[in-house]
Design a protein around this nucleic acid. Structure first.
Lengths: 253, 253
DNA sequence: CTCCAGATTTGATGTGGATCAAATGCAACT
DNA sequence: AGTTGCATTTGATCCACATCAAATCTGGAG
């Protein structure tokens, strides 16, 4: 679908305007981090396609052939897998500047689905060409390795969460994690709009949707947060963090 | 500290004999997979140090500076982190041919401890030099990316396990995983010796040690396996796999 | 606007695994 | 052999969360 769009003639103009990593504000969260301008423009050449994905549509599906990584330019995604009996397990939530698809490198097949939770745009990064460029630019190589490693650390702290924490702690950790990631993008750390349903939160955190809902209510009653459907405001950040103090030295989700 | 070890006694002789990736039987599980001989010898040059780690000793500790990855030449390790209140969470078990330490790339600080569960030997791979070599050898680059990606996939399937499965299923999945990895190394898929305690298994699987013990007993009573302290034999592999049939990811669309 | 399917909240009840407790087994000592 | 300290097993009880159920809310389609 988006292939057709790219080939249109007027595209190259938009192209130069919109696609360049060199003028992307997300640079320091994304692949270009730490690159000098000269190298940045090489990265620009690599990303010759952008895709927009409407809310509810998938960016890729589990089982399909892997060719590209995707950097989120705008929007919000979940990655998820289905079990044989049809239940779904959410494996992550992803926001602007984050790279999706690295799990597929090991087998050349996507291990999970990626679905937009709001209207989104991604930069498509052909992986073979990225590997070539990585060999030319040490700083890009280092940043790419960091991104993969960060994903491993992130997954391992989710493992700790699922293995050790009770419901209240899990939800607190989840909210604090969203808060931090919002802050890193220049948005409010204390108030935000949830893009996912209670069920998706529960799936990610190993809880049932009813438990997520009850826990939100409980945290609200106890003055940690206010919740109004998808809107969450953290009222007492310190106390919320204190809920987790005994769970982990550093690696909180 | 490891520098000191290298200096003592007869070590350098063993060195030349045993260190070469080129004659290492683990090659296809490890970094050298797919490399032509010419490139292999370059990899040999990189690995100029081997460390032996006695049972119970750590290979590295969380919080220490990261310099090298480690390939397990012989032995068995756990990686684990401590929570503030002193509980430990096991984040993985690692056997011959596997690479440890990739989680530290993101921050240059080790995110977890690595402790030998039996007397072991590892090849130390200085990371900066590995990155240099990776830029020279595309096949090595690809294999390294696969290894990182595989770790991500592995962690995500543990997340699914912790989020979805009941105790019996978790233990079955754990045993089947060990079985597969043994088989991949040319050992028996049906019978093996557990290197870790019930408590460590429980920590990894999000269960208490008593639950692990009870579940072993239950699986034995029902004819799936036999357990005699650390020795486990899988009696009915098919039925054991069937326990998981409805949990496994369905990658078809 | 109304209608309707899905999302959320809240209550009542059940249960799997945690917790508490105690006996036994086993390896490394002396 | 006896002692010590940890690992394991097994039983009894408890509780956090799942499950079942129902009411309410919400947003999108017509």
């Amino acid at each position: 679908m988006s292939e057709a769009v790219v080939k249109d003639n007027q595209k190259p103009v938009l192209h130069a305007l919109k696609l360049a990593c060199s003028n992307c504000s997300l640079a320091e969260l994304c692949l270009p981090f730490g690159l000098p301008d000269a190298d940045l423009s090489q990265l620009d050449l690599l990303i010759d396609q952008r895709r927009s994905v409407r809310r509810g549509e998938h960016l890729y599906q589990a089982g399909t052939h892997f060719e590209s990584l995707y950097a989120i330019r705008r929007g919000f995604f979940k990655t998820h897998a289905l079990t044989e009996d049809g239940r779904e397990q959410v494996t992550g939530f992803h926001m602007t500047g984050e790279i999706m698809g690295v799990d597929a490198i090991s087998t050349d097949i996507h291990a999970c689905h990626a679905t937009a939770l709001e209207d989104s745009e991604v930069c498509e990064i052909p992986f073979t060409r990225l590997e070539n460029l990585i060999r030319e630019i040490p700083a890009l190589q280092r940043q790419f390795h960091r991104i993969m490693s960060r994903e491993i650390v992130r997954d391992q702290s989710v493992m700790m969460l699922l293995g050790n924490m009770r419901a209240e702690e899990r939800v607190a950790a989840f909210l604090l994690n969203l808060s931090q990631r919002n802050a890193a993008r220049g948005y409010s750390a204390s108030g935000f709009h949830l893009r996912m349903t209670r069920e998706e939160i529960g799936s990610f955190m190993g809880l049932k949707l009813e438990t997520v809902s009850r826990t939100f209510s409980k945290l609200q009653d106890e003055g940690y947060i206010t919740v109004d459907k998808k809107r969450v405001d953290i009222i007492d950040m310190e106390r919320l963090k204190a809920l987790l103090s005994h769970c982990s030295p550093r690696n909180v989700l």
